[in-house]
């Protein structure tokens, strides 16, 4: 009994000393360390969708890479095709505690076509998670076998999902270059746009490879063109735009990239900390396993490379702005 009585004050003192020491070291480290509190990872779409799944897969591994004392909280902020979330991150305090995952193709197209607050070229880019190439598809029984088959036809109906969507713009630019006359048959969702092709109500459509590949595998859709620098190894017969005589710049200009970014003005040290944590996180086996379960793959780029991709995407849409304005004005 006495013994413990004797020990208690000592224990209290040692506790206090330890506490003071830890507080001291914490403050000492905190002056130049990031992060000190939770990070908000903003997703511009609903829970359950593709972007949400990427964010949910990344968050736990990113937490680990950032030292394990920080939570990375995924926040869904759906609305206006990701614009609500992008504006939110764009306006946020540039301290690295608010970052977002973005759909480059869609947001760059929107930035070119409408008045929005954000400017993608000004943001601090942290890396690219994946690339989702645009593809051109027709119904399997449609009789079309090559993009050139549409030349000289009287009436070509394109199944679209919003005329300012990057897939539609890709199609408009492609048909413009091929000299094909077409008219849009617009839908509010991918499901309806695909059914329209399968029913034969429209002739052709453009969309992202990830969102359409299951229908190609099922045999309902057929891919006529693959927009990337190289052919897709799984579909060696499908050409890229430059291979059928279109300008090489459209090979990659309109593709969807899933990229991570922070508000403009975020300090270099914070950007570097986040960038290297993301670079490590995408190599984490747990992350790779999750992504493989989603039947997609990681195509990582670092911050500087991502910035270049962003700038060229915005430039690509701006260069074809006339085609886009014509598209919006003439129909």
């Amino acid at each position: 009994m006495k013994h413990t009585h004797m020990e208690k004050p000592w224990r209290a003192v040692s506790c206090a000393v330890a506490l003071a020491a830890s507080v001291f070291t914490a403050t000492a480290v905190a002056q130049d360390s990031f992060p000190q509190r939770d990070i908000e990872l903003v997703v511009g779409y609903n829970a359950g969708g593709g972007y949400s799944s990427w964010a949910q897969a990344l968050a736990p591994v990113l937490e680990e890479q950032l030292g394990g004392n920080t939570n990375v909280l995924v926040r869904h902020m759906p609305g206006a095709g990701g614009v609500v979330a992008t504006n939110y991150v764009y306006r946020a305090k540039p301290d690295g505690y608010t970052i977002g995952i973005f759909n480059l193709g869609g947001l760059a197209a929107t930035q070119t076509a409408s008045e929005v607050m954000y400017d993608l070229t000004k943001m601090a880019w942290l890396g690219r998670l994946s690339l989702d190439p645009t593809i051109m598809v027709v119904g399997s029984d449609s009789g079309f076998n090559a993009p050139g088959d549409f030349k000289g036809r009287d009436r070509t109906v394109v199944s679209t999902k919003g005329l300012t969507a990057n897939a539609t713009i890709t199609g408009a630019v492609t048909f413009d270059l091929l000299g094909v006359d077409w008219q849009p048959l617009n839908h509010s969702g991918t499901s309806e746009a695909i059914l329209s092709i399968i029913r034969g109500d429209s002739h052709v459509s453009w969309g992202s490879f990830d969102s359409l590949k299951q229908y190609i595998e099922n045999g309902d859709l057929k891919m006529l063109m693959y927009y990337d620098a190289e052919r897709n190894p799984a579909y060696p017969d499908v050409p890229t735009p430059s291979e059928i005589g279109l300008p090489a710049e459209i090979n990659e200009a309109f593709n969807t990239n899933r990229i991570l970014g922070a508000p403009a003005g975020t300090s270099d040290a914070v950007v570097k900390a986040l960038e290297s944590a993301i670079a490590q996180a995408v190599k984490d086996p747990a992350f790779i396993e999750r992504v493989e379960k989603m039947e997609v793959s990681v195509q990582y780029l670092d911050g500087a490379q991502t910035s270049r991709v962003v700038n060229s995407a915005v430039k690509g849409f701006t260069d074809y702005k006339d085609t886009i304005s014509e598209l919006l004005g003439s129909n």
Partner: peptide, 27 residues
């Protein structure tokens, strides 16, 4: 029949099933 979700919730369900190796569609 096609792997095409009939409703928003069905789209989320499909996402969940794909992660378990099930591919909704003609198969």
């Amino acid at each position: 029949a096609f792997g095409i979700p009939g409703s928003a919730a069905m789209a989320v369900l499909i996402g969940g099933l794909i992660m378990h190796g099930l591919t909704p569609g003609p198969e």
